[in-house]
Design a protein around this nucleic acid. Structure first.
Lengths: 187, 187
DNA sequence: TGCAGCATGTAACCTGTTACATGATTAG
DNA sequence: CTAATCATGTAACAGGTTACATGCTGCA
């Protein structure tokens, strides 16, 4: 049993990618270096240890290709348990804290939901994401107002403005995507 | 001499706050727990070690109040060198990488610029931030288009959409703030 | 009296970073 | 032939998280 969810964002991203198609460590690296998942390390010192951790937890399994060469290419795929844990990690409840400290992770989770989570679960997730984001947005807006135009610095105020705009954008995106998803028959 | 800049975001945030007014570790904690800087740890296990590191580097200096009590309150302030290093950290050049991997830090830096950096330096910074953000935005938009509506998952596409929207918002904010700043006489 | 909040800290642990290291294969 | 790219890994280090620990102060 142990933990029914993945700890680090990198590990979650790896599981999510391997759920789509089995890959070697090096291929994962290339994905992290070249696609929109650029935000992730992509450094071998992060990926290979992460893969070994996931393997020791029984979530991924590496099968060696080209056994004859000295440095064989190892292709990793999800185990059944790996797929379960991934689905569990994706469907964990969304809280206010996640919106404040873990928005990146929420979006990462969302990006992997197609095919792994039911439409209902996905709707639930997006709904929670949207409302918590709107709540926090209100709070930030309040703070911005009380800040006032006096006594606080121009750049400080502007930076907070960026934060407000950022959450506003995310809230709008979440509502829009929620609507789009509702109109769909399937995921 | 050693490093002329601060490594971690937390340390930078601490220096920035202490530049405004001297504070105790506990007060810093409260700021991180209650204001828009919530994004930072605020855990004592992060703040107190960070303060000791900064002190050992000669960037901050703690003076003890109420010497009689067993557990005295220590108020930290910037040293002259601390102020120099902070200004240097704020004025480091902005690169493409910063926009991809360190946007939070860029905004943190910007928020502290008033009073520490010249108007010209601040304009330079915002300008670089804006153009690198626009560059990266174009790249993301291109990736979104090549993704196409076929073969890729609904949630994956939607997540990328969020990324695009997010960078778009930041780019707009940067340009808007740049204009506002240009119209100003001083910072 | 007891509890919440003030105030400071330590220690184990986890994970990511940087830098280094090895060797195979392929293209110019 | 040699440089880039494929492909996998290790080791030292840094910094944050969680949990624990201490003791004071004010208030109900």
């Amino acid at each position: 049993m142990t933990s029914r969810h993945v700890e680090s964002d990198l590990s979650l991203a790896i599981l999510g990618l391997l759920a789509v198609a089995p890959m070697s460590g090096y291929s994962l690296r290339k994905v992290f270096l070249t696609t929109a998942l650029k935000a992730f390390s992509g450094s071998p010192g992060a990926i290979y240890p992460a893969l070994r951790r996931l393997e020791s937890e029984g979530l991924v399994e590496g099968t060696v290709e080209q056994k004859d060469t000295l440095r064989p290419r190892k292709v990793f795929g999800l185990t059944r348990r790996g797929r379960e844990v991934l689905a569990d990690s994706l469907s964990r409840p969304v809280g206010r804290k996640d919106v404040i400290w873990g928005m990146d992770r929420l979006l990462l989770r969302f990006s992997f939901m197609s095919g792994l989570l039911s439409r209902e679960r996905t709707l639930e997730f997006l709904n929670a994401l949207a409302s918590h984001t709107e709540d926090y947005l209100k709070e930030l807006e309040a703070e911005y107002k009380t800040m006032g135009s006096g006594r606080s610095s121009f750049t400080g105020r502007a930076a907070l403005e960026q934060g407000v705009e950022s959450y506003r954008t995310t809230a709008r995106w979440a509502r829009k995507t929620l609507d789009a998803l509702k109109k769909r028959a399937s995921l």
